[in-house]
Design a binder for these strands. Structure first.
Lengths: 130, 130
DNA sequence: CTAAAACCTCACGTCGGCGTGAGGGGCAAG
DNA sequence: CTTGCCCCTCACGCCGACGTGAGGTTTTAG
């Protein structure tokens, strides 16, 4: 299929697909006239790339991970790389849960101000002069 | 305390603190000569800001949330805002868990290729020519 | 008093993941 | 042939959270 169809099927922009090629994440074949041609499997590939981007990984990192994911490479280094990125994601989840809990606490407080709770330890007197 | 000390205590850069002021997230008092002076509570404040930044919130969003967190504002709108941001974080967590699980699957596969599992549905023949 | 820190205000640089034209080719239908 | 749609390659724009000087003032230690 050509780039427009892949874009339509995956929901990502044509520009983004060209960008993925630039980053060597998804390199299509070319017709004689220079047009890009993608195999059907490219749809799944784009989905994976999107998932990883959504997890906050950079193009470079994804580029490093893809060969492992494709199971074309399976060395101790590649496994370490996979675990490292997994752990980074884990940390990020931890941070997000922390922020969410914080907001949940505020929400609970704003809805039921019955208790004089101080789960948000003291936010007052933010500045002082001289 | 002055900006350098706050920076040291919180681990964020002096530049970042000035930026927070620019964004109206943390506005310190000033001495006659123009130097910033922060109250001790500013340490916690910076921690909160950092937590929210780490959760992927923008300066603008944090600015909107802070009055609610400070419990200075408690309107239906502010509560809706809090919930909306909480839900965004929830979604982000979902995405991250998805990505992590994906990597976990790959890791499991790379370590024990005993099972002919296909949890990563077909990643092959990525491109075709003409 | 003097020198070194620490502070101040501009104001431009960076980086990543694209958006958005500009300007021009390829290909099927009528 | 021509209309029209999809495709191509540059190449600049953008945005947010700061980094990084430049050039000058204030505070502090000796």
């Amino acid at each position: 299929m050509r780039i427009g169809e892949l874009a339509a099927r995956t929901g990502v922009s044509v520009r983004a697909l060209r960008y993925y090629e630039e980053q060597a994440l998804l390199v299509p074949g070319r017709s004689g006239s220079g047009q890009r041609h993608y195999a059907p499997a490219a749809v799944d590939r784009v989905g994976l790339i999107q998932t990883l981007y959504a997890a906050g990984l950079s193009s470079r990192t994804i580029l490093d991970l893809l060969p492992c994911v494709d199971a074309k490479v399976n060395t101790p280094e590649s496994r370490a790389l996979l675990r490292a990125e997994r752990d980074r994601i884990d940390e990020q989840i931890t941070r997000l849960v922390q922020a969410r809990d914080r907001l949940d606490g505020v929400i609970a407080h704003s809805e039921g101000p019955a208790s004089g709770c101080a789960f948000l330890e003291s936010e007052s007197a933010l500045s002082s002069s001289a």
